[in-house]
Structures are given as C-alpha cells and as structure tokens.
Design a protein around this nucleic acid. Structure first.
Length: 634
RNA sequence: GUCCCCGUAGCUCAGCAGGAUAGAGCACAGGAUUCCUAAUCCUGGGGCCACUGGUUCGAAUCCAGUCGGGGACACCA
C-alpha cells in the first residue's frame, strides 16, 4: 500500500505500514504453546541438556514426590503448575530459588517455613547443591558448586555458536508470515522492522527446535495492483517517448516504475499504446507485479532474508479456494446475510445500511460480524485471508504467527476468530504488531526518498548503515513499542549505540585470542584445545558470575521463543557485553585478573577458554538476530 | 461511541510465566589509562511503577474501573 497520500482517491492515506507484516500475538495468558500437552505440569519438564533449570526442576519434583512417598509431607496435588525454579535476582540469595514451599503450603496444610525446610533438606542431597536454605517468606535458595558452573562452561565450548539450541519445540511446525507488503513499490522502513522482527522470530523458534516456515503473502489482488498497472502503463508510454508530465494524483509516482515501463516496451513494443485499458490492464498488471516482487525479494535479500513460501492472494480468487472455505463455513452456519450497524462516533459520510454476506466473527470473540463481500460482488480482503489461513492450516500449521504493521491492530480479532472457526479450534494464530519506526538524522525527522516518491525505503537505510546495524537496531525495542532510529547514532562508535557495544565485546575477546596466539607459543587455542583447559582455575567470583550469566542463555532463548519476543535476545546480549566489559576493566585495577598472564600459562589457557565461551554465546545470540559478529572494530 | 496498545528515574526504555531491597543507558557529579583496544569501566544522587479498588502468603506484573497518550473502527489492502 502506498504511503503519503497515494491511496485511491477519496480515501485517507494509509500509514506507511500498509498491510505488511502479520503474525501472532501471544499475550502472556495466551497459552497456545504451553498447552501443547507435551509437558507435565511442572514447568520446563521437556528438558534439554543445556537448560540446567530443567534438570533441577525435574530433580525437585522427584524429591518432592519422594518426600510425599515417605510421608515426610502430605500427598502432592496433581498440578504443580505454579511451582517454579528460577535464577535468583540477587546473588546473595544463591544461584537458583524455588517457590515450591510457598505455593504448596496451603494445599499441604503446612507452614511455608516448615515445608521449605524439608524441601531444602531434600535438595541438599543433590550432588551439585552446596547450600540449600529457606529464606524470606519461604523461598528455598540453592547455591550450586563451582564445578557445576565449570561444567556449563565446558558445554558452551563444546557447542560453540550453536549453544542454546534445543529440542524443546520438538519439531512442531510453526508458520511465520511476515512482510507481506503489497507489490506496488519498494519496501519501506516500516516493512523493514516487520521483516527483521519476523525473520529473527523465525530463527528463534528454529533455535529451540521448531520446524519453521517463513512465508510472504502477496497482496496481488484488488484495487492497488490495478493502480500499479495504470502507473506502469504511464511509464510505458513514457518509455515510448511520450511526455507524461507530472504523475496524476492517485497513481504511484516513484522512479522505480521507470524500468518497468522500459521492460514493457521491450516485451510488448507499442502494442498497448493506443489500446483500451481492458486490453492492457491484466498483462501489464502481471508484468508489473512480477517486477515489484523481484524488487521486494532483492530488498529482503539486502537484509539476508529469504522466505520459503511466497503465497499469491490472486490465486485464491481464481482457483475457487475462497468459495471452498466459505462453503465450509456456510455448512456450519457461520455465514449469513445481514445488515451491520453503522459504527458509532466517526461515521463514514457514505454509510448506508445494506444487506451483506457476513461471517459470525462475534461468536469467536470479535466485536462484530464481518463482511465477506464487497458491494460490487467481489470478495473482501478478509474473505481471501480466511482462505489463506485455511490453506496454511491444511498444510499442517496448527501454530501460525502473523507479523503486521501497527495500523492493522483492528484486524487481529477477526483473523483469530477466523482461524479458530476454520480449524474447529485446533489451530492458533498469534498476531505480532510492529509499531512505527521514527527515522531521524541528528535529531531531525527524515521522511522523503526520491526513489520511492515519498517514504524512506528499506534499501535507503540498509545501504547507508549496513545490514547488521539495521537488524540489531530493529530489535532493540519490544515489537509493540515505537522505535527511534537515528542515522547518526546507530553508526556511532560509543556505548550509546547498542550494536557497537555488543560487537565491541565480541571483537575485544577475539582480539585477545589473536594476541594470545601471537604472544604465547605452543598454546592450543583451537576449540578442542580450549575445551581441554584446566577450567578449575576459573574461580574468581566475577568470572563465575559471567559463566552463570551465560549458562542462563538457553533458558532465555526458550522463554523468548515462547513469548515470541526476539528483542529479549538483543537485551540479553547487551547485558552479557556489559558484564564482559566490566570484567575486562577489572584487569586494569588488578592485573591478576587479566586474561593473559605471562607467568601462568595454565590459568591463561583457562581464561582464554572463558573468553572463547563469551564469543560463542554472543555469536549464538547474534545468529538468532541475523547479525554477523565482527572480529575487530573498524 | 467501541476495540487494541501504552503509562516505570529529568529523557529513552528493560523488568524474565506473580516473588525477596524495582533495573540499564542517556543526562548530571566525581573517579580509573606505563596495561590484552579508555571505542571501555567504577562510584554517586535520583521512583506514589498514572490513579482507585480487587484477587493472595506476596502485585510494576493478574482482574475491574478512572484519568492521560497513541492506533484502529461496513464494502480498502
């Protein structure tokens, strides 16, 4: 959809984000993923080797069951759903804590403190637990042995940048549909955010074991592509030597259509020049859409995005698929002819009560029923979208995510309603909304682009600041929060700039490893060599804190994936970078904390292993975001 | 009028499935460099988590309502 007043005459220009992305919202209480039925009540039961919280949680549950079996505590309830084992916020409370005693106290009719003491005693039997204590209102705090943490460090080194991959998703198929911009012009910044978000989310879901399909819905039916065809026809006449003057209101003025006009001349000569629109509209439309989609793919390629499926809306109309799915809804009495009430408040001037073909969306949580046919008899966009989501369902996607622009928020309920209806409640749809990107340069708003005729294109941004910067920056805010993007700031080499900050941490660590290789002869700095280092020499509190932080990374990935929030990965990397920079600078005050110690090659080797692990975790996280870790800053 | 999102430090924002004393950056004040990149780090002041009620062992977090900001509201895509 065009931005900046290019919409069909008489309509309010749409937001820069026409109908871009689409996706799935999964509010915290939306339990679609959690209730897959594959996990027993206690959280994170389906565990993976790298998420040690799972191991401990399993162990906790076993020990609770044993306590009950030994009559040390009353019988447990079936559902331990609220019992969690999580990292402590304050290191003074140990490494991990469980609320088991607080949650179970009431049903077991015990005082939280008493229950907590039994749990603590039981957990003290775990070989890695060096301290188990009841604290506060009844938390059980556990401190884990240094050896336990060193084992996690070894795991990171063994996994490398693959660290954090898990089987939690169990190969369950998820369809992520994103970008889905109308094929009427180049992608703009709004699409850019949705593109990066969707792609990172897809990668995140893959990382935790889902079978992900990345998809793009081509809106190649309807009035906008006709407008595109007319705009291309104008450029066609121009390519034939006509002076077309200014582009009339209502047509797309962008320069990007000039080569399309030339291409049309190459293909068709002057055959259409004096023909009626009814003759040239379809062939030119087809040609122009193909050209636009080629351009869109190039733009996405610039961000390293390659989607698996490009699905044409037009084919839904021509293949009878819409009639097919709607017939199913008719059979279930979910479609009727009726008259909608006029919306209150802002009423359209041309409103007239009229019988329409309506879908009973209100039976599935929508605010009102929704129209499926336009006044001219054609299907509405929504009707086609139902068929599209039905198609996805039939292709085996019980879990669907759409990533959309902010202006499509009002469309979410009906689409979710439709997915529920067409799947008989078997499929879920989460729609993720991406808020606007505010582009600035030195604080001043940036709005125009020559190439597009109005909006700043995705290409403008990527070409100027680079793919990695764009990708990272787009994820430094939660998707539903507006994002400021300042051309000057994002390329600045300072702590202000999170991209730089994280990349610098990686580069710094790599730099030490390179220097070590040059300075210290005979040390094996290969991954296997570092894995064989004497990790028991990692013993300072700061170093172990860094290890603990990295060991929490797989869990963070799982949680970010469950919440469909890839931005959490970006924030985690920032935190890890901060911890690393902090450790680094301690070496300035206290030289014994430096990584390279000429007089202690064994300790040096161990610390270099730690350094390699930092690189691995950063690389792992950046990999999810689609950002390349750098070896050095330039 | 209805629906959705948002409201946390002066500013921009995190806050992990309800958890213990609410965090970071910027800005402000002070400090650290014979050193593996000071492109960094450390310390400090700063908070009615918009408001009111509710749920409970416990609420910034969940629920209801109020106020304030943004967005969307037949047939467009």
């Amino acid at each position: 959809m065009p931005a900046g007043g290019l919409g069909p005459a008489g309509r309010r220009p749409r937001q820069p984000q026409d109908r871009p992305t689409r996706g799935r919202l999964h509010r915290r209480h939306d339990r679609s993923f959690r209730d897959r039925g594959t996990c027993p009540p206690l959280r994170h039961q389906c565990y993976d080797m790298t998420n040690f919280f799972d191991h401990l949680a399993t162990d906790l549950r076993d020990r609770l069951a044993r306590l009950a079996a030994d009559d040390a505590i009353p019988a447990l309830p079936d559902d331990l759903g609220n019992v969690v084992l999580e990292p402590t916020r304050d290191p003074a409370h140990g490494d991990v804590a469980t609320n088991a005693a607080l949650v179970l106290a009431k049903t077991l009719r015990m005082k939280p403190q008493d229950l907590g003491r039994r749990i603590a005693d039981a957990m003290a039997g775990h070989p890695d637990v060096v301290e188990a204590a009841v604290a506060g209102p009844g938390f059980v705090n556990l401190r884990l042995s240094d050896g336990f943490w060193r084992a996690r460090l070894a795991e990171i080194l063994a996994a490398g940048p693959a660290y954090g991959e898990s089987a939690k998703g169990a190969g369950v198929a998820v369809n992520v549909e994103y970008v889905s911009a109308n094929p009427t012009g180049p992608l703009h910044v709004g699409h850019c955010r949705g593109a990066v978000f969707g792609d990172a989310l897809a990668a995140l879901l893959e990382k935790v074991g889902h079978a992900v399909t990345r998809e793009y819905y081509i809106n190649d039916a309807g009035g906008q592509v006709d407008t595109l065809a007319r705009s291309a026809f104008l450029r066609y006449r121009e390519a034939l030597g006509e002076d077309i003057g200014d582009i009339p209101e209502g047509l797309y003025p962008g320069d990007y259509l000039i080569p399309v006009g030339q291409g049309l001349v190459e293909k068709y000569g002057d055959r259409f020049r004096h023909q009626d629109e009814s003759v040239w509209l379809m062939p030119i439309r087809e040609f122009a859409i193909a050209a636009m989609m080629a351009m869109v793919r190039e733009d996405l390629e610039a961000l390293n995005i390659r989607q698996d499926v490009f699905f044409s809306e037009y084919t839904l109309h021509t293949s009878g698929r819409i009639d097919e799915v709607l017939q199913e809804l008719v059979d279930r009495d979910l479609i009727y002819e009726g008259v909608l009430e006029a919306p209150k408040g802002k009423q359209p001037d041309d409103w007239e009560p009229r019988p329409q073909t309506l879908f009973r969306a209100s039976q599935f949580g929508d605010d009102t029923d929704r129209a499926l046919k336009k006044s001219n008899g054609a299907w509405t966009y929504f009707a086609a979208d139902i068929a599209y989501h039905f198609d996805k369902y039939k292709r085996g996607f019980n879990h669907q995510i759409d990533v959309w622009g902010a202006d499509h928020g009002g469309y979410i309920k009906r689409m979710r309603a439709a997915v529920t209806a067409i799947s008989g409640g078997k499929a879920d749809l989460d729609v993720k909304i991406c808020q606007l990107v505010k582009l600035t340069r030195g604080g001043e708003p940036v709005k125009m682009s020559k190439r597009s005729g109005s909006f700043v294109t995705l290409r403008d941004v990527v070409d100027e600041v680079g793919r990695d910067v764009v990708r990272f920056m787009m994820l430094t805010r939660k998707n539903d929060a507006p994002l400021d993007f300042d051309f000057d700031k994002v390329t600045e080499q300072s702590k202000d700039n999170p991209v730089f900050y994280v990349q610098y941490a990686h580069a710094r660590a790599r730099s030490v490893l390179r220097n070590a290789a040059a300075e210290i002869a005979g040390m094996d700095l290969s991954r296997t060599g570092l894995s064989a280092a004497s990790l028991d020499r990692i013993e300072s509190a700061d170093e172990l804190a860094l290890v603990k932080q990295m060991a929490a990374f797989p869990r963070l990935l799982e949680q970010a994936a469950d919440a469909h929030e890839p931005h959490r990965v970006a924030f985690a990397l920032y935190d890890l970078a901060a911890a690393f920079h902090g450790l680094w600078n301690k070496g300035k005050e206290d030289p014994s904390l430096r990584f390279i110690l000429a007089d202690d090659p064994v300790l040096t080797h161990a610390r270099l292993a730690l350094l390699q692990a930092v690189c691995d975790v950063i690389a792992s996280g950046l990999g999810v975001l689609g950002v390349t870790p750098v070896e050095e800053m330039r």
